[in-house]
Design a protein around this nucleic acid. Sequence first.
RNA 1: GGGGGCGUAGUUAAGUUGGUUAUAACGCCGGCCUGUCACGCCGGAGGCCGCGGGUUCGAGUCCCGUCGCUCCCGCCA
Length: 633
Amino acid sequence: MSALSNEYWKRTHTCGELTGENTDQEVLLCGWVNTRRDHGGLIFIDLRDRYGITQVVIDPAQEAQEKGNNNNLNNPNNLLDRGSEIRNEFVLSVRGVVRGRPANMVNSKLKTGEIELLVKDLTLLSRAETPPFVVEDDVDASETLRLKHRYLDLRRSTMQRNLFVRSQFIQITREYLAGENFMDIETPILFKSTPEGARDYLVPSRVNPGAFYALPQSPQILKQLLMISGMDRYYQIARCFRDEDLRADRQPEFSQIDIELSFTDEETIFALLEGLMKRAYKEILNMDIPTPFNRLTYKEAMENYGVDKPDTRFELKLQDAGEIFANTGFNAFKSVLSSGGRIKGICVKGAAEGNAAFSRKDFDQYTKYVSNFGAKGLAWLKVIKTGPETELNSPIAKFLSQKEQVALTKTFSANAGDVIFIIADKDPDVVFAGLGALRLQIGRDRGLIDQSAFHFHWVTEFPMFEYSVEEKRYVAKHHPFTQPLDEDREKFLKDEDLPKLRAAAYDLVLNGHEVAGGSLRIHEPDIQAAMFRALNMSEDQIQSQFGFFMEALKYGTPPHGGIAVGIERNIMILVGTEAIRDVMAFPKTQKASCLMSNCPSVTAPEQLAELQISLLKQKPGSSQRSDMMKLKN
RNA sequence: GGGGGCGUAGUUAAGUUGGUUAUAACGCCGGCCUGUCACGCCGGAGGCCGCGGGUUCGAGUCCCGUCGCUCCCGCCA
């Protein structure tokens, strides 16, 4: 069989654009067979491409009536024969005439539903085996199968839309930042490992045996060096790599809009991002996002929501009950307070009585749920109406004085029918984490979250340091190039009160997700040196890991700062999906493997030898062994 | 590293206290059909019940192990 001429795929239109205005035009469409409805002497084919679906009709009787204007009309029977051979996902070239549909046959579900294409010639460009799942919008297949045949999954309109929105978002970003004088500069993917932070992906160097590059966790140092170079305003759509465990919103490689500016301050950066988001939401969703965004300090976020990335689409804020129990006789609470712990809670409206009431089982499940976050218990108190008064109904009620019960009701603004949940723990982080997670869970369970809302806000004044139990030292909460807040600079230089110092670091939070994070950077060499010392790094470590950077700082560094916007998380929320896998073309599974290509895979011994790498003996049953088994089959 | 959920035709699921030949829908194959758009009607094929062990007269079902997918904790500056 000779090759087809490319005349067959010189499309005049896409499958999403023909309307009544094109009636009687002769057109050529190309696409995939979405469905075929064979009526014997009449065949309907829904032809699909990225732009939409157009109904194509093989109707020899109609065709015969319309003799005249075409000189290479096929034998009608031949057309029907070919039509009946067609199966889902075949690739077709269809030449035909656009026909308006009678009013009662218009399909209002299709953009092109007021017309159809009467086939004059139909050519099979490519056959397809029966796909492992039916390619349709409401896909009826497990994610495992979808990932194995990702190229088929990506034919679905939801996936195509997700990737299109992502493309739009990046395009808008480029235009916006170019308009603000930003320069797109690429930085290396093969770079130096910097042990602070996440685990690195390493790449062996063949020409330097035993030495490794690391894939960047972010271009942080490089973009700061660009500021020292006088690039003034830099951005990059930067791929980042982190070898840590995956989550629904975490992949080993992801992209961020990496931004850095010289001679800047927080207000400038906030306004820049607000402008970007406003424009993106307007152009993509035609939605007006109010700016400037609200701001919360880290402390306010923790006290009110228990997390540093609060979902503010619903209330259900945390209240403090520490004062109520300052002199309590209830030993459990008393010991928590005396050892520096916290007692906080939330009040759930209308959850004590009626149809929407929590059952004993619900309480047990929530108790179990908060235990995931370290909470040893969850107290619950139902507010019950007893005549004109209310009283608390709870396993712990008998331990609480009348005064405490009244104060509780008041502090939580609780009415009859409400339920108060309380967590008390010696470790304040457990109280925050437990209640923060409980608040979110109850918000979801009780439908308190407005799914169509987009709530942006800034979280500011993050702590500079947090203590690492594992490493027995303080580590930078953001990263070690972050400047202390001006008010805390003196204390920082005196090395005082490290856990209480605040950084000029900020996150942009959207619907409970951290969608961007940044800081003002240290531009003074002595401050940077003090920072490394605070992190308990020796001079040798500083030299070997960051010597080149310390050197660069000495040659005239402008004050600078920046931010990085997580592209996948933003798009995920924009298109309303739960996993960032849905906004990436070829994502990895939770074990960081690709089901389509089966990577990572075993490397040939020769390839390892060339790199002078030998493998340690594998544990029996390890994934490497099972991979080798797979290869043998 | 730890905890939860899932794994049965091509696909999505059902499968009772362990007991005949493992169901259904969609898809697939064949036939019929000129107005469908979830086309319709008739017929048919299709199973290592993830894998390996164990208990039992008998295992999709119970037990142990293992692999894979997923959600969460730790981790993710």
